[in-house]
Simulated assay, not measured.
Amino acid sequence: MKQPIRMFGIGLLTAGVIMLGTYFFFSGSVNTVDNLTNDELVSIIEEKGYHVLSNSEYIAASVNESSAQSEESKENNKNAESDNSSTDQEKEDSANDKEKDQAEEDKPKTYTLHIEEGMASSDISSSLEENEIIDDSSEFNDYMEENDYSLRVQLGEFEVNSDMSLYEIAEAITR
């Protein structure tokens, strides 16, 4: 038993000596960022196609950019003022459209869910999400798993709507 352990130790020592020798003899002189001067760094960066700015050049460029943005915002404000001069009829029409859209959004959506044999609970939740009955199919899947509803899903057609809670939907499809 001592012989294999000694040979393993000698092998490790030999590998360490070889790696140490390789590191010292073949590493050479590597230029790191710490060893280079600023002028050398700038020339290397410019060779790669970048442009180096001094602090004063950067500040000047930033000021010019912010003044250009403020001029653009002034032009946008002028355009907005000219757009605001639309007729009262257009305003009334848009207000009526908004009211109709909101009334449609407030109306609960109903859906007849068809559950067939072999249908997974993930398929059911995806179908409910596609028809805008639930907001998040993974949340419904998690709810079904945590409350042991996924094993009690019944076959058939079930009427569900978007006003129902996850509990109510789960109860409806497991009866």
Rank of each mutant, 00 (worst) to 15 (best):
S138D: 12
Y149H: 02
E159F: 13
N161Y: 00
G28R: 04
I44W: 02
Y111M: 04
G118Q: 02
N131Y: 06
I59Q: 13
N76F: 06
K78M: 07
I59D: 09
A15I: 05
D97S: 14
V33T: 12
I133M: 05
N141M: 03
V63G: 05
D88K: 11
D88I: 06
A95W: 04
L155T: 08
F140D: 01
N38V: 07
E99S: 14
D163I: 03
E168W: 01
A60M: 07
E157G: 05
S73Y: 10
R175W: 02
F158S: 01
S125L: 00
G156W: 00
S127I: 03
L113K: 01
E105M: 13
V17I: 13
V42D: 03
S137A: 14
Y58T: 11
E75R: 15
E130P: 01
L41D: 02
L128W: 04
D34M: 11
G16I: 08
S43G: 06
Y143P: 02
D135W: 04
S43R: 15
V30Q: 13
Q102T: 08
D135L: 11
L41T: 02
K91A: 07
E171Q: 15
Q89M: 09
L53C: 09
R152I: 00
D142M: 10
S150E: 11
Y23Q: 03
V42E: 07
S27I: 04
N38M: 09
S150V: 06
